[in-house]
Computed example of a mutant assay.
Amino acid sequence: MPKESGLPLSYSAAEVAASLGCSEWWVKEQVRRRRIPFLRSGGGYRFTSDHVQEIFHILEERPNPANAIESEAIPRRRTTAQPVRPVASLRARRPRRARNAA
């Protein structure tokens, strides 16, 4: 059994992607754009458990109760049927070479 070193465990981009249910490319792209926290170790990206928890909080979306109440109070607009217009028949033009030859 390995000895506890007191250092935090680190995870690879592939492991973080698996826990998020997304691709490894997406995780690396978010790192490149500095949207999520990370460690740079030997040219690779590593993530601690604190980083992963923060990423979950960054990506979390919560409903706004005020929006839910407003959306119920606003009646939906009924759409009226548009009158059907007669269809215009189209005629093809004569080709340019046929016009020039005549």
Rank of each mutant, 00 (worst) to 15 (best):
A17S: 06
G44H: 13
V27M: 01
K28Y: 05
A17T: 00
F47L: 05
A17D: 00
A17G: 05
L20I: 00
E24R: 15
I36W: 03
P37G: 03
R33M: 11
S41G: 06
G43Q: 11
C22R: 15
F47T: 02
F47N: 01
G43M: 08
S19H: 09
Q30L: 13
R33A: 15
E29G: 10
I36D: 00
R33W: 05
C22I: 15
L20R: 02
R34Y: 07
G42Y: 12
R35D: 07
R34D: 14
V27D: 00
E15N: 05
G44T: 09
R32P: 04
L39W: 08
L39A: 12
G44A: 13
R32Q: 11
Y45T: 07
I36P: 01
W26E: 08
L20N: 01
E24N: 14
G21L: 01
S19T: 08
R32L: 07
R33D: 12
G21W: 02
K28C: 12
E15M: 08
R34G: 08
Y45D: 07
R46V: 04
S41Y: 11
S19Q: 11
R40M: 09
L20W: 00
Y45N: 15
S23H: 10
W25E: 13
R40C: 10
G44M: 08
K28D: 06
E15Q: 15
R32Y: 08
V16I: 06
G44P: 01
G44Y: 09
V27L: 02
A18N: 10
E29T: 11
R46G: 05
S23E: 14
R32K: 14
Y45Q: 06
S41M: 10
R46E: 06
L39H: 15
V16N: 01
E24V: 04
S23K: 13
L20P: 01
E24C: 10
S41C: 11
L20S: 00
E15L: 05
L39I: 11
E24L: 03
G43L: 08
V31W: 04
R32W: 06
E15A: 14
R40W: 06
W25N: 13
K28Q: 13
R35T: 08
Q30G: 03
Q30R: 15
I36E: 03
R40Y: 08
R34F: 10
C22Q: 09
R40V: 13
G43K: 14
F38A: 14
Q30T: 03
R33E: 12
L20V: 00
